[in-house]
Design a protein around this nucleic acid. Structure first.
Length: 807
DNA sequence: ATAGGGTTAG
């Protein structure tokens, strides 16, 4: 038998080894070109680059010119075996006019994402006058779509029709998909309407096109049309329709599709099961999601990730982390989706330890991308670790709006408002803020009481039409409340068309902080009658409101209704509110008994609330009891030692003050000096007690002296009731109280136009002497003074304070 | 005598 025929026979039965062995064993052969072709063909089929290369070198050493069909075969072999570079080298070498080969090269580039190279080849092909066919266009459409160039899609569309291949199903289908990817929904639909012969892929392209363009409803509509047209749904159809169900919560349809899929044996397909699992999870049916997960024969990283995400969605963060650990034990490698999910779980459950572990895993195994960096930042921020968050932020080469929002929101929430505002300013030069940015930065204005800055941002919000976003309007509301402008908050609140639980809670808390207990209660009732159920946070707000206005009976009613009416178990903060309320109103022993009977362990702030009440009502004995518990629980908190020292001082128990000072002396007390600030013309002026470094220090001092004399003349006795213990060294301040809030108010009187409200913010609670003086100042200078201390607001007007002594 | 259109997770 002829050698050619022998090799051909080996190739025909797929015996590549024998074919190649025989070829190698031949001396300078006189094989026919077809023989080389058939053996190259088999190499391509087997993807055996090694054999292909051998054959190639034999061809070259036999001095055969590589051209025509043999050249094409060689290119095909190299491309198929994954050596695109060598394939391209030969492709460029041979003069070729075979459309097939051009298509092949274009496809390969498209496959690896080099869409531009693919289009480049297409243009070259056109220049050479080689006409494309349906394959050419389906490929080129995919490239245009991937680059998102809608104009190109239309151009190609016209071109395709001129050549007369447009009616070809494959081309039409790829055009439909391309239009969807470039946002040309209407063009896609028109094309589909005009398409005479719609196959299952035409329908699938429409369904998935709609779903991916955010109109799942339309996708389902097309699916129904498809059923009516009696086109049989395949796996891809089901996957797209399940995604649509997941997007818009169509659980019952999803279930029906589950049944259909099982009947069609798609439940063996991993893609079907994964999509199904995600559908159940997004529709809130965790039990069925778990069932699908359990029954899956094989699980990919996608399956695990979807299940983890399902737990995260349901707030079961510990379960999510548990499942992640289990996945690791099964040696399934997480990808960036898994990691963002698990980081989110760590963020929401404040698991800094696990979060850091995940960060280390990423560092070691894969490196960061933008979503991962954003998720990491969020995790660190939510765990209160802003240094780490900023480190991640600073290492992101190209930050997106989410990166900025995350870092700004992180600083805002972690009480670093100046950092938040600084980054917000920086963001405006480097990126474009969106509505979420507003909701992230506004709390920073709130915590600084930066009303002017807050107003500026409000302007920005109005100019950009962000006001209808509920997050934004709630953040604005909160900002105005915290900046002391309750009237503006009220106006804004009334204008919110759809008030949610947060809007109501912010308003209730606002009324409470400003001393309008009855308004807070009315608002709470209004909220209930509008059909919104309070949660534990709204109860904290209403209880605080009661305590700031001394409404004992109402407070008890709300506290008791929590469990009875709403089945909400009171937490530490609710107990603390009640202790605060009882203690402030002088029911000290009742407060003490209340703490003793608590079903959960009281913390420092519970006892601290009692201690506070003891100061107001001068009960040294109970104060000592409460203080001992506080010191046990929070030995490092300076404020409580100062508080007890003041209680002793007010009772003139100087020996005890001395002893307390000695006790602290051994520990070494962290200083937290009182400071107050006031915003004038957008600039913050910060004052620290006894600090004379302010440029206007002399003017302020002489104004205060004048006021002090006037106060005396009008019968205000120099106030020795309030013992003044200096927080930094626990020494009695013998001289006149030089507290920061007085300085700031005086500065406001000197620098703000008459009639303008003076808004001062203090980091600690207001001092008694300052409180008295502020009353006087409001009367004698005919100014409204709004003072925010660490606890609440004091509105001074005509010698009266809104707190009516509850502070 | 070789390639093609539609498909899951944040």
């Amino acid at each position: 038998m002829d050698v050619n025929a022998k090799i051909y026979e080996f190739c025909k039965v797929g015996n590549l080894k024998s074919a190649v062995d025989l070829l190698i064993s031949l001396e300078k052969s006189e094989l026919e070109l077809e023989t080389y072709c058939s053996i190259l063909q088999l190499c391509a089929k087997r993807k055996s680059l090694q054999d292909g290369k051998r054959v190639h070198s034999i061809i070259t050493s036999n001095g055969i010119v590589i051209e025509g069909i043999l050249g094409a075969k060689l290119v095909f072999m190299y491309v198929n075996c994954g050596d695109l570079r060598e394939g391209r080298r030969i492709f460029d070498q041979i003069l070729n006019d075979k459309v097939f080969l051009w298509n092949l090269m274009m496809y390969e580039y498209a496959k690896i994402g080099k869409h531009r190279e693919s289009i480049h080849l297409f243009k070259k092909m056109q220049n050479l006058g080689i006409e494309g066919n349906s394959h050419t266009f389906s490929c080129i459409m995919k490239c245009f779509a991937a680059l998102g160039q809608a104009g190109d899609c239309e151009m190609a569309h016209g071109y395709v029709y001129k050549l007369g291949v447009g009616s070809h199903n494959v081309v039409a289908n790829s055009l439909i998909a391309a239009y969807f990817k470039c946002g040309g929904v209407e063009s896609a639909h028109k094309l589909f309407d005009e398409l005479g012969d719609r196959d299952v892929i035409s329908w699938n392209s429409m369904i998935s096109g709609y779903v991916q363009n955010g109109s799942s409803e339309n996708g389902l509509e097309v699916f129904i049309q498809m059923l009516i047209s009696r086109v049989k749904a395949d796996l891809a159809t089901l996957v797209s329709v399940l995604v649509a169900c997941a997007n818009i919560g169509k659980l019952s349809l999803g279930r029906a599709l589950h049944g259909y899929g099982v009947k069609s044996c798609f439940d063996r397909e991993i893609m079907f099961s994964n999509t199904l699992l995600d559908m159940y999870s997004k529709c809130g049916d965790f039990d069925d999601a778990i069932q699908v997960f359990k029954k899956m024969g094989q699980k990919t990283v996608v399956s695990w990730t979807s299940m983890i995400a399902a737990y995260v969605r349901g707030g079961l963060y510990d379960d999510a982390i548990r499942l992640y650990n289990e996945m690791e034990r099964e040696h399934v490698k997480p990808d960036s989706y898994t990691l963002t999910s698990i980081l989110h779980a760590c963020a929401c459950s404040s698991s800094l330890e696990k979060g850091t572990e995940v960060h280390n895993y990423i560092r070691k195994n894969m490196g960061l991308n933008l979503s991962l960096s954003n998720a990491l930042m969020d995790m660190y921020a939510k765990c209160g670790s802003m240094e780490e968050a900023h480190l991640v932020f600073s290492e992101i080469p190209i930050k997106d709006v989410i990166s900025w929002n995350t870092i700004i929101g992180g600083y805002s929430k972690n009480s670093l408002p100046n950092e938040a505002l600084r980054l917000f300013a920086e963001m405006q030069t480097e990126s474009t803020p969106d509505s979420i940015t507003m909701a992230c930065v506004l709390p920073a204005c709130g915590s600084l009481a930066a009303l002017d800055r807050g107003r500026e941002i409000h302007g920005h919000i109005l100019r950009n039409g962000y006001s209808s976003d509920p997050h934004v309007s709630n953040a604005l509301l909160d900002m105005y409340v915290k900046c002391g402008s309750l009237v503006l908050a009220q106006l804004l609140f009334d204008k919110i068309p759809k008030k949610d639980l947060i809007s109501w809670t912010v308003m209730i808390a606002g009324y409470g902080m400003h001393g309008f207990g009855n308004e807070a209660i009315a608002t709470f009732k209004e909220m209930k009658s509008s059909g919104i159920e309070p949660d534990e946070i709204s109860f904290t707000s209403i209880l605080y409101a009661c305590s700031h206005s001394g409404l004992v009976n109402e407070g008890w009613k709300f506290f008791n209704s929590m469990k009875k009416e709403f089945n909400i178990e009171p937490k530490l903060e609710h107990y603390a509110c009640m202790v605060d309320l009882l203690a402030r109103t002088g029911k000290l022993s009742e407060a003490y008994k209340f703490i003793e009977k608590m079903p959960i362990k009281p913390d420092a702030s519970t006892w601290g609330a009692l201690l506070c009440g003891c100061r107001i009502h001068h009960d040294v004995d109970l104060a000592e009891k409460a203080a001992e518990r506080v010191f046990e629980l929070e030995p490092e908190n300076t404020g409580y030692y100062v508080l007890l020292a003041n209680i002793y001082a007010e009772a003139e128990k100087w020996e005890k003050v001395k002893k307390l000072r000695e006790r602290i002396g051994k520990k070494g007390l962290k200083k937290s000096p009182g400071s107050s600030w006031i915003e004038v013309k957008g600039k913050f002026n910060i004052f620290v007690a006894g600090d004379a470094s302010h440029p206007q220090a002399k003017r302020i001092d002489s104004l205060l002296k004048k006021l002090r004399i006037k106060m005396k003349d009008e019968g205000y006795s120099p106030n020795m009731k309030y013992a003044l213990i200096n927080a930094s060294d626990m020494e009695k301040e013998v001289a006149l109280c030089g507290h920061s809030e007085k300085l700031a108010i005086a500065f406001g009187i000197l620098n703000l136009p008459p009639g303008r409200t003076i808004r001062v913010t203090k980091n600690l609670r207001v001092c008694g002497d300052c409180h008295e003086m502020a009353k006087f100042m409001s009367k004698t200078t005919k100014r409204e003074i709004v003072l925010r201390d660490s606890n609440r607001f004091h509105h001074f007007k005509e010698g009266i304070c809104s707190c009516r002594g509850f502070w």
